[in-house]
Amino acid sequence: MKKIFFILVAVLTLSSCTTTQSLYSWYNYEDATYQYNKKSTEELQVKMLEQYKKLTDKQKGTRGVVPPGMFAEYGYQLYKTGKKDEGLSFLKKEIALYPESEKYISRIIKQLEK
């Protein structure tokens, strides 16, 4: 009788073991960008840029690289805040990490440099 219970407990414990690990670390990205999108204040922009910095500096996900589109978003925001060279270099990093983004990101770079 006890054995059956033990087996059941063991099965339940094992089945709950398989947690899916994230490919990327997102920190507070979703909320920070959402809040800024809702209300574009300077304060919220600072908070959002902090999240981009964290995201592009420290990745603890299983892939260990920056998520798709993130270098580009960060670069675009930096460019808009006046840090043009830094912004462009981040946009180029997007292409280096994800070559499949080249068509689109080059288009953005061209538009910004116009």
Binding site: S22, L23, Y24, W26, Y29, E30, T33, N37, P67, P68, G69, M70, A72, E73, Y76, Y98, E100, S101, Y104, I108
Partner: peptide, 17 residues
């Protein structure tokens, strides 16, 4: 939709851009 599609393993164009 951006975050869950990235986590699924796709290259997703940033919706903000």
């Amino acid at each position: 939709m951006y975050l869950p599609l990235c986590e699924k393993g796709y290259y997703v164009y940033s919706p903000y851009l």
